[in-house]
Design a protein around this nucleic acid. Structure first.
Lengths: 195, 195
DNA sequence: CAGAAACCTGACCGATCGGACAGTACGCTG
DNA sequence: CAGCGTACTGTCCGATCGGTCAGGTTTCTG
């Protein structure tokens, strides 16, 4: 994690985009918070959109891996194949998740966001394959969406403004998420098998 | 549901605020979509903020009832006392929920939004009372947040643009949500009792 | 029919936005 | 020392924003 100005801009912008929203965050705000001029921000990132792209592209790349790991877990025990990578991904990309979970729809049209939305849809489609019962679909949606939203909400509802959350009991949180998500997914699987 | 211009403005604005976001929706956009001039919109609602207030105040009032119904269900079977009203509330206020679930943090500072956020916090606090284990807290968060987010996401991921979603199997959805949320809450309760 | 109230428009305002651009200070290399 | 790339700054621009205002039309009421 280098300490260059460009990296500072990235960190500040990620924070502001996640908490205040992309539309409500001006380049001037980012510049001020980073201790630079607006022009300096635009020197490092040629546009506001390019800045957003630089922020969430790595996270979207990681999401690609998560989707792949789900496809791989099609018939195995989903816990190790899919759930743990999924939960780890959520916890490691909280701010980026917050951006495209909460603003994914309003920002559609931007290429990076569309790519992220497409991946989410692919994940949803992959899971709907062979799942007919509505309550199973909803259970699955709650497992994925609920976990994502819970992790994101933890940013907002705990006293934030601190650079990274005070997750000292991160291991416990992780274990709990893995257990609950697995529970919801397994319930879905078994009811599929029984059907 | 009257067909006056003021009501049209309200409907259009609710849609745009929920889908495109409050910050990204200009009064001019609302006016255009409603077939009026910008001035006409500002004639019916004195400011953009007043328009948002008119949209979500009824939903926030309803949320007050939901919070009260949770307090009432403290030791009873939570299904009828709390879960059903909660799920019904979510389904009946999908667009408004979408606004202050997804944008509640970025819009903090606006009185109506702060009131809504305070209610959500009150609900969270009420539930944390006596719940120590982290996995129980997360399970509860996933029950409430996940249900809310699932209902909201259904707006965004299904082909929208249709005025109200094509929820013909609404009864099945409702039943499934009630069952799943109840399951998560009951698991939490029993583990509290066992502890 | 007179007048008031309700409804709506177009013109205009200051502020802020994303972004372009010309210029400057600094360090490295030949 | 000359020259060049990097890292910035302040200035300016057109567009768009939320909001005001003066006036026009329609509708209701006495």
């Amino acid at each position: 994690m280098p300490n260059t100005s460009a990296a500072d801009v990235l960190r500040v912008a990620r924070m502001l985009f996640a908490i205040d929203g992309y539309a409500a965050t001006s380049i001037g705000h980012i510049a001020e918070a980073a201790g630079l001029s607006k022009s300096a921000v635009l020197y490092h990132y040629s546009s506001k959109e390019a800045l957003l792209e630089a922020i969430i592209t790595p996270a979207v790349d990681g999401l690609e891996g998560v989707v792949a790991s789900f496809a791989r877990s099609a018939d195995a025990d989903p816990r190790h194949e899919f759930v743990e990578p999924f939960v780890d991904y959520l916890l490691a990309n909280r701010l980026e998740m917050s951006i495209f979970v909460n603003q994914g729809q309003s920002l559609r049209g931007l290429p990076v966001i569309d790519r992220a939305n497409g991946l989410v849809q692919r994940l949803g489609d992959a899971v709907s394959l062979g799942v007919v019962r509505i309550d199973d679909r909803i259970r699955f949606g709650m497992a994925l969406g609920g976990a994502a939203y819970t992790v994101v909400a933890a940013i907002n509802w705990t006293d934030n403004a601190l650079p990274s959350a005070e997750l000292e009991d991160a291991d416990e949180v992780r274990a709990a998420l893995v257990e609950i998500v697995t529970g919801l997914l397994v319930a879905s699987r078994t009811s599929v098998a029984a059907h």
